[in-house]
Design a protein around this nucleic acid. Sequence first.
DNA 1: GCTAACGTTTACGTTAACGTAAAGTTTGCC
DNA 2: GGCAAACTTTACGTTAACGTAAACGTTAGC
Lengths: 138, 138
Amino acid sequence: MALDQTQSTFGIAELAREFGITTRAIRFYEDKGLLTPARDGQRRVYGSRDHVRLRLIMRGKRLGFSLDEIREMIDLYDVDPSEVSQLKLFIDKLQLRREQLRIQQEDIAETLAELDRLEAQSQDLLAQRASVRTKAAG
Amino acid sequence: MALDQTQSTFGIAELAREFGITTRAIRFYEDKGLLTPARDGQRRVYGSRDHVRLRLIMRGKRLGFSLDEIREMIDLYDVDPSEVSQLKLFIDKLQLRREQLRIQQEDIAETLAELDRLEAQSQDLLAQRASVRTKAAG
DNA sequence: GCTAACGTTTACGTTAACGTAAAGTTTGCC
DNA sequence: GGCAAACTTTACGTTAACGTAAACGTTAGC
């Protein structure tokens, strides 16, 4: 077995290690309807679908979304496209998310620009200090 | 006074209206050291500096930062550049923030790409449905 | 057969970020 | 001078997202 085909089942501790979270958190996400692992007797067995979902959860958290929001986003991937009216609603939801993300992009761009400015200032100051010390020592 | 020079003092209710939050929240931010309004007797008087800070707070919240993190970020704007060692530490902090924001950018880009994919699929489906109905009706 | 390692459920505790309510003060206005 | 609007402090309540602990089951290795 050299091919290391993407692993297809996981234990809870295994997932916890991989994502750097606790098993408590993973069970909590299940309680909140974000994960739906299979069972082997009592034990939870996570498939590749859960693995993907957990990745989406962590990404959502990094973006500051609540678990409720994250669930809504994740559910977008599983939407049932049978009803046209549902489809249109679905597309509307997509637009809302998109708009929110666009705002975040702007916020990040602004912030990065300000950080750039601050760092430039600081580097200037550092250079000045360095040159002052050099001249004083020379 | 036609020039509407940027307003320089604000009441708490005024700020609350402008930013779409409650006065309670504004006082809470003060408790946490994010705002430091002047006083006119008992009453808080917010200057342009507080106004700027409140904007930064709201931006930080949109990006999912905690108030502690936001305070750290805001304090970067007021850093005292007297000590070189402090300056270097300061630059390190800037780098950390930058890295975090870069990750968020990536996360957003990924998410937007997936939303694009989902929407394209949906629009396809909608178009198919529409053409089916058109043919059935024709 | 015992002990780790891994897993389970149940339940109470904790922190952040406010909401909500009570009770009082100050100010402009009629 | 009385009332409403805006403000104050104090304090208890609430929600999200887990942490922590207790008490128990099961499986592999020595």
